[in-house]
Design a protein around this nucleic acid. Structure first.
Lengths: 224, 224
DNA sequence: CCTCGTTTTTGACGGTCCGTCAGATTCTGC
DNA sequence: GCAGAATCTGACGGACCGTCAAAAACGAGG
């Protein structure tokens, strides 16, 4: 029930009293989202209080509650509003052939694109991951939708390069693709942790490409 | 500074006023930890309040603060106290040969052991992951120590089965091992998410074993 | 078993942030 | 420039926090 309300909230933003906001209201709402994004860059999600957002937006806490039931919902709306389009990543997977010697280059390209994508949306993605970890289904949904395209593309590559669907079921290919995407997303997000631990990003990049290439094509990484 | 205080807290539990607790005090402290663990099974970490733990332990909030500065520290102590020994997992990696046809069986065995390990410590590990995601270095440390053995073991396997250290540097092998461990830990932890998404654990298990096997040995998964 | 110093527990309090509501303020069409 | 709708806000009760001084429980020595 509360979940449905939140979903509606995103599609058709209503004020807390059920009326549809007009120009001014929508502007205020947008300003609140901007300020939320701004604060996410400055401090960690857990530290952000409603009063902080209100102050930043030069308004009062009560106004915040006019548009969002809580901070989580505001961040949800922000994540929906942010352009988290991984289409280009899916296209890298699909658009070039994984067969032959060029395949490994595609793997590297995908890893690089993913690292860049993460860098561009660091602030929002960090919170999305966090709330997914907390088991929030709404954010689980955002994350799934975001990565779905890439996963499907990878499953296709597996079918293409390995037995064309006769040797493994669609479901098994999806499992492998899902595991790979989870790996990529997780390692990318924790790049800093690895560096702190003494593993440079360059090596990480190479390792991810190796694993990707061999798991998708079924062949060992080409030498060199 | 606050971090050092917390580390000391675990090694040598002092009360908030700096004195060392006696028998009765230590018993109370232990009871508080038990109750924290109990609550972690019943409700999500975020929902747990100091007053809940105090009520459960049949004491007052002030008593809680006598032994822990906050809930996070109590959970930290709990995680330290819980036996999170992944030694057996490292031994699976090291103890049997990955060469030849038996190698794939070892991969399956490791994945199974990991799934079981997670199941056994679900409540605590979930919180550890959560707080790592929030960037807490103390929990990062716990997690690293926990998975370290397995990572080193995997790096050794790579050296053993692929070129004996001449073809790749130690650092690169550690990067690959680190990525693999991150993948295993992450997928294992989110098993439920995958199932919700329509991917059964059986397929996940198979995919992880495939990726493990091919990445560690450099060979494609044996047929059958 | 009483006394006294030490350890442990607790009730009570001031503070922060939450979430709500009724009334004040601003807008908009006429 | 007025009526009614839309938007904003000050003020409040409530949950939980973290602290402190004082009460209670303990236990060693007489």
């Amino acid at each position: 029930m509360s979940e449905n309300a939140a979903v509606d909230e995103v599609d058709d933003p209503r004020a807390s009293d059920g009326r549809v906001p007009g120009r001014r209201g929508l502007a205020t709402r947008a300003r609140l989202l901007e300020c939320t994004a701004e604060l996410l860059h400055r401090m960690s999600y857990r530290e952000i209080k409603v009063i902080d957002i209100a102050r930043e937006a030069k308004t009062s806490p009560a106004t915040f509650y006019q548009y969002f039931p809580d901070i989580e919902s505001a961040v949800l709306a922000l994540a929906e509003a942010t352009n988290l389009d991984t289409g280009p990543l899916g296209e890298i997977v699909r658009g070039e052939s994984w067969r032959g010697k060029g395949g490994y280059e595609v793997a590297l390209k995908l890893v690089d694109a993913l690292l860049e994508f993460w860098e561009n949306h660091r602030a929002v993605l960090r919170v999305v991951d966090l709330l997914v970890a907390e088991g929030d289904l709404r954010f689980q949904g955002i994350r799934s939708r975001m990565l779905n395209d890439m996963t499907l593309a990878m499953a296709d590559v597996i079918a293409d390069t390995q037995g064309g669907g006769r040797r493994t079921s669609t479901q098994k290919r999806m499992a492998t693709a899902g595991v790979l995407v989870a790996m990529l997303a997780n390692v990318t997000a924790h790049r800093f942790t690895f560096e702190f631990w003494g593993i440079p990003t360059a090596d990480l990049r190479r390792s991810m490409a190796d694993i990707l290439y061999s798991s998708l094509t079924g062949k060992a990484r080409p030498k060199g």
